[in-house]
């Protein structure tokens, strides 16, 4: 009798995957931030933007924002780099990330500051030298992180931007990067909404990579078709993501109950993006980097969240968890 009962119980649990996704886990980088206390966490200047052209070394102090692109070594690289990620027509990502480079101090020929990119904040120290037409800065990151390297950039006199290269110390996937950065100051604006103009659809790139490995024996055309079809699957946000602001008002059940998984995810992470959070999560990073107003300035924003935002985050997380657990399954939820 007991064995029958135990077998029955085992059988019961073996079928649970039909009514619930037991592995559902909602990831939240901000609240679960396990960063060790950032010793060199320096504040980002919130002063009015300095729009003067660069004339003397001191003019370089401040925040510089732009794309941190992988260096293309040849034309072939540009068109068919294996490191690029494609998901159908018009949804490519050439591995560029938005970077915020902060030059904090210039004393004599010593320069120091930090950069924030892809959820990683690193300090740098180096030298500045001046020629008739430009300034050249060469600065190193500490070197104890796999992704540390050397910045090497120019600021031409009379220009409003800086541009240069970066090279990793260690052997990593993308060894060299290029960038052209312009001044931008970070100001928290709770009313900031997603922009439709600079919108890049949210795509779960990683899921696409893992589950939809392109079959080898497809012709080029078939391959195109394949990506177009699979990529559509990852896009599940509605117009609601432009309307709902989780930073300005406390959301109610009625506001969130009809949102899709994609909506909930974007609306919650939009709170973090407003605070200038730099995302480690790749799909989110690609999505928010595309937003023209967005600047990654912090890697830990837990203490910046307002009471309204904290409440909304909890509500959104609850609905996200429920959606992940029950939406595709046999049940009411």
């Amino acid at each position: 009798m007991r064995t029958i009962f135990i077998t029955f119980l085992l059988f019961c649990f073996s079928c649970n995957h039909l009514i619930k996704n037991e592995e559902a886990k909602v990831e939240d980088e901000v609240l679960n931030n396990t960063l060790e206390e950032n010793k060199n966490n320096t504040s980002i200047t919130e002063k009015p933007l300095n729009i003067k052209p660069i004339n003397k070394a001191g003019d370089i102090i401040g925040n510089w924002v732009g794309w941190f692109r992988k260096k293309e070594n040849s034309e072939k690289d540009y068109y068919e780099d294996k490191r690029d990620i494609h998901a159908g027509e018009g949804f490519g990502w050439g591995r560029e990330n938005k970077i915020c480079l902060v030059i904090e101090k210039i004393e004599g020929d010593n320069v120091s500051g930090h950069s924030v990119v892809a959820g990683n904040q690193r300090v740098f120290k180096g030298k500045i030298s001046e020629s008739d037409t430009s300034f050249l800065i060469i600065a190193n990151e500490p070197g104890d992180n796999k992704y540390d390297g050397t910045f090497n950039f120019y600021a031409n006199k009379g220009d409003f931007s800086i541009n240069g290269k970066w090279k990793a110390f260690k052997k990593i996937e993308i060894q060299e990067r290029e960038y052209k950065l312009s001044r931008k100051n970070f100001i928290y604006n709770s009313a900031q909404q997603l922009s439709k103009e600079s919108y890049k659809r949210y795509i779960d790139w990683e899921k696409g990579e893992k589950e939809y490995k392109k079959p080898k024996n497809l012709t080029e055309e078939e391959g195109e078709e394949f990506f177009r079809e699979t990529s559509e699957e990852f896009v599940s946000a509605t117009e609601k993501i432009y309307e709902i602001n989780a930073s300005t008002a406390e959301l109610t059940k009625a506001d969130v109950e009809n949102l899709t998984k994609g909506d909930l995810l974007i609306i919650r992470n939009m709170i973090y993006a407003r605070h200038g959070y730099s995302f480690k999560n790749r799909p989110l990073r690609v999505f928010f980097d595309a937003q023209e107003w967005y600047i990654p300035v912090h890697t830990d924003i837990k203490k910046d969240l307002t009471e309204i935002e904290k409440k909304n985050i909890q509500l959104l997380l609850k609905y996200e968890k429920n959606a992940k657990e029950y939406y595709d399954y046999f049940g009411r939820g």
């Binding site: 109950e257 949102l259 939406y327 046999f330 009411r332």
Partner: peptide, 21 residues
């Protein structure tokens, strides 16, 4: 049938949850 229809809709049309409900 309610739970079955919901499961089918969720896996095909992927409608917002309450529209589906």
């Amino acid at each position: 049938s309610l739970r079955l229809f919901k499961m089918i809709l969720a896996n095909t049309l992927q409608l917002p949850p309450m529209d589906m409900y």
